[in-house]
Design a protein around this nucleic acid. Sequence first.
RNA 1: CGGGGUGUAGCGCAGCUUGGUAGCGCGCAGCGUUCGGGACGCUGAGGUCCCGGGUUCGAGUCCCGGCACCCCGACCA
Length: 569
Amino acid sequence: MRQSKLFGRTLREAPAEAQTPGHRLMLRAAIARPLAAGLYTWLPLGFRVQKKVEQIIREEQDRIGAQEMEMPVLTPAETWKQTGRWDMLEPITFRTTDHNGREFMVSYTHEEFVHLHAIQEIQSYKQMPQIVYHFQSKGRDEARPRAGLLRVREFVMKDAYSFDVDQPGLEKSYAAEYGAYERTFKRMGLDAISVESDTGAMGGDVAHEFQVLTEVGEDRIAICSNCDYRANMEKATRHMDDRRARADGVPPPSQIATPGMESIEALEASLKQPKDAFLKTLLFRDQSGKVVAVVLAGDRDVNEAKLRKALATGEVKFAGDADFAAAGAVPGYIGPVGLKARVLVDQGVGGGAYIAGANKKDAHLRDVVFGRDFAGERVDASDVRESDVCPKCKVGKLSIKRGVEVGNIFAYGTYYSEKMRATFVAEDGTQKPFVGGSYGIGVGRAVQTIIETHHDDKGIVWPAPVAPYQVHVIALPVNDEEVRAKAEGLVADLEKRSIEVLYDDRDETAGVKFADADLIGIPLRVTVSKRNVKQDSAELKLRSASESEMVPLGTAADRIGQIVGSWPR
RNA sequence: CGGGGUGUAGCGCAGCUUGGUAGCGCGCAGCGUUCGGGACGCUGAGGUCCCGGGUUCGAGUCCCGGCACCCCGACCA
């Protein structure tokens, strides 16, 4: 490829809105361009990277016996309604109607549709296990697209779906995908770790995310200092020691005057008590408008993902003034005692005496005891935090790191097949529901995550397997007849060997060409210059190395072929 | 959806407080000199100043309304 013809210019400066290093480099190196909020066009260089990432994913899926297929982007509403997700996904999906008024969703994911096909194609237990996958665009009307390709509103996902006859079968498929993911991310240069995750909109129980730890990530991951426990904050729990403060001998609640103290911080400051001596009570509405109170220790924050799960709802919001009035509560002085609402009590609330709102203006109650003075359902609805004790080994301390979720795997079992009556004939002749899992990788997000984790101050340093080209040949200066002849001869020779070459034939100065080569980050740079040609040689330099190697022009192609051939694929 | 910010040439920005010829750097085109780390000179092209309304003799600038984009938070690959 002649660089003079390349569609896509490198930028000396990144647009102001680009914040993360990967976002800036992605734009500067002409990988992709924004079209609207959260919508990106791949330019030719980025498109090649995307295709290489896809190919790695494809090879690893094929290796475990998964079969590639393709389902449409537009999906009919009726099927979504069968599983209840038409309403649940309303806030984050793009929808449209055809000219007859029939409703469609831009596919958010494809569980429903792959089940529809499984019903038709798989009739007998003899046909399983099966894993199918496709690379398909997903539409998600994210409230806040972010950081270039890291969170967008339309993206290509590899999503795979397994069908098994029973739970042990599912576990095998799940393990096969788990292994495929480890190989896939490793091959593309990503150091992804698996973490336990919430199942969110996908339903089901067991799920892992593959996270690449980096400061630019938006997920928070709890990691144990001692064992292999790693979990997304949405899911992470902590070990709570058993010593329950005793309520014996605690006097009944008594009112204390707390004028103007409407926050835990204000109470902490004026009553000179630690935050965890208080109960924090928060009022929420779920998606259907039902109001619920969540009671937690004053030093803890509510975890909305856990709360949604506890309430089996798609959305929770803070309640309004009318809800407070209906519950007999006063904002700033709300407490669980005498509250007229469903009450959930976080597991971090102990059995001892707390100070809590009195549901009266300017008043709190001391000596409030859970189980004695108020009742409520026990739930886990709070965040873990730095230094909490690991729930698995009960020894290590948790630390919180940021990560980018590049892939995930869910074992949802019969969640969809039961709702859709997707069954097969089992060995005993009865109809049984498919036992399934789904497995996703965001391609564009993976590409930018590679950039986020493979760059220096000059530009991208592509891992060879995903680089847009393998070799960058630079002619210097290109208008020198002999230089150009030698460079073009070398390029032709390399291409004959099926080596992917970007040839910088632009009439630019050495500084511009080297700077662009560093920015674009192709693994091997080959300089054919007047100076080198005089000595009948070419300079080979790896993007990742600081020193270079001079080789005779006559054997340059051999040497380059040898280097390129030694790279992992 | 809550909070904050920004919209002026392809990109980065100034001009707005105090209304009066729309500017700078990079990039782009032509010519010449350069040619191993973002060269230099000369010439030139390129603008609905986000959109709509208002105030005014006159609006990029002031007022009102909208839209878009970015950042922080809540949600996802």
